[in-house]
Design a protein around this nucleic acid. Structure first.
Lengths: 200, 200, 200, 200
DNA sequence: GATGAATGAGCGTTCATTCAT
DNA sequence: AATGAATGAACGCTCATTCAT
């Protein structure tokens, strides 16, 4: 059975994502999913470990989406575009994930867990880009900077949704806006790939 | 007089920046600057308003730095580069500011205050870019997307410092790393400006 | 179970009755009955609601005593005397109740709750007196004034116990003094009933 | 000058009377009369002594009203009626006084001060009644009981104003209601005096 | 006479956690 | 697997009071 466990995870996901780790009380989680507060500790021991489990569930889903895209057989620039595309779609379908990430990273907490998941992905990314464009190693478009910049461009659009909404007057998470931003990101990628090709 | 007020602001800045709003207790702030807990409430009324005052102090400094750069007389691309440069320098010298921003924005709190400061700056930015490159309006390199992307690229490097450190094995906030990233950002800007020039 | 709940109620009764709502700290209540301070909020949510519950318990007891006396079959004057008698006895056995009432009513707080309990009793009282002595309606011995006066005479003896003690040099709550005052009240009632009979 | 002293007393009177001793903060008093909080302590030392001064001012006024009425030359029953009349008028013109009294007496605080003022008045009252109606000494209409009862009847009407308002649906402190209650009290006094005359 | 700054003690309340059942 | 009762620690905040000016 263990139906309670999943319901707790869902409620914790919602509240941690919406309010943040500190601002979420275990009492709220228990109330939201209709179980006793003590049951949370029975299943997850501490609030910290419950948060860990929520993050872990997200990373499981994310890797299921990104690994096939990264491991594809096509040319590198197309796979990079596919990853940007897939990552935007994933954040759109898991809109609380990016906010959770931003908050906790900036808080310096749970960073080990996040880094542990990012390091292998990042390693593969750097290796792939450097294999495709060996001349750029160490240049202004070196793989590590590129990856961080694209990661930043994608995630900022989601994490800053409330700010962007206030600035542009439209909902940055609405489908047409997301598509527009995706086209923008792919164009940026094009510019970079063209520059890398020239450097070659 | 009012020496206590400044000392409280300094301590609040440090703790809010390091731990976040929720994870910082007024008791900690009082202990850090050696004043009585009640004095915080005497000067700032609530913890919320103290945080507000800390942010406000940062925005005061930031505007003092950015406004002259934005209002310069030179060609637009050079002013854009100057702004990227100045913003990176500001975040380097106020390394807690970007983390505070990331956290609170992602938490959806204090967003009104942040937006209130960003809107005018953003408005000027969009108008300036569109005046310099009128053909791009509405395209994949439209001013709003560009601004958000560059803002995201700059701030991510700082806010994700702990992650980047774990990934690269070097301190991303060390002078040489910051310079390298600045060159990367300026190169990205070059690519965009070139593309905009071609579109013209 | 729920042994703690009753012990908290008892301790709250004692301290609210002795010191008043404002002058009683939840910490004191917890210490008096040997439970943790947080348990009070677990069972009663707020200090306000705890006070409410204490009052409610008193009204439950009071109604159990007075309703049978009021609903008796005998002649009205005898039932009035019975009520004075029963009310004095009740206040003697629940000596903190009248002080709590005086204080909170005079403070204008919890008045809704008190009025909610008094209104039906008062309504029955007025109707009964007016049915027995119809000619007095609107006169100087009109039922509402009479009821307030007798209520005032009874309760003042208890609520002003410390003053009366200082004035008379004897304990007004000692059995013989209470009996003397009860005889006084019944004599006052006699005078009124005789006057009402004459007016008829 | 000492203008500040009087303004503090007025503000303290209003707030103590309306909210009670505990529920009134010195900060509120200072804000209400527009002086600095520390000035209260400069003039009155402690909150306790400030309350004492407020009460003292009331007793000064009350004695100025009642002493001439009690010391009159006419027959005792008429002087008793005059006292009831004068006391009702005084409480009407100083409507916060009775609430303050009820509250603090029931709280058992400031009782020494109150008793100190009541004892001489009470002594004179008892002596006068016993001189006029010597046969009643120790009976059911003995002077102490009578005085407490009439004091209770008068003051209850004022102190229980919120309750009476909820019960009767009219404002018990409105002029016509006060007059009606005064007539009621004088009628009660008549009944007692007639009974005392018969006992003679 | 009057003030702004500062304090120590205490407030009601909430927290994550534990435990017996 | 699940619960109601209970706890110790900490929370933001308010209090009457003090003090230097």
């Amino acid at each position: 059975m263990a139906k309670g466990r999943e319901r707790i995870l869902d409620a914790a996901d919602e509240l941690f994502g919406e309010l943040g780790f500190d601002a979420t009380a275990t009492r709220q989680i228990a109330e939201l999913c209709g179980v006793n507060k003590a049951l949370i500790h029975y299943h997850f021991d501490t609030k910290e470990r419950l948060f860990h489990a929520v993050l872990e569930r997200y990373y499981g889903r994310l890797e299921q989406v990104l690994v096939p895209l990264a491991a594809g057989e096509g040319p590198v620039p197309e796979r990079m575009a596919g990853l940007v595309d897939g990552y935007v779609d994933f954040l759109r379908d898991n809109h609380r994930f990016s906010r959770m990430l931003q908050r906790e990273i900036a808080s310096g907490r749970h960073v080990e867990q996040i880094v542990a998941h990012m390091v292998p992905a990042f390693g593969v990314g750097v290796a792939t880009v450097e294999a495709a464009f060996p001349a750029t190693r160490g240049g202004d478009l070196a793989a590590p900077h590129l990856l961080v910049s694209f990661f930043g461009m994608v995630v900022t659009w989601f994490a800053y949704a409330p700010v962007v909404r206030g600035l542009l007057g439209v909902d940055p998470l609405a489908p047409e806006q997301l598509e527009a931003h995706k086209r923008h990101l792919l164009r940026m990628l094009d510019l970079v790939v063209d520059a890398l090709d020239e450097d070659e």
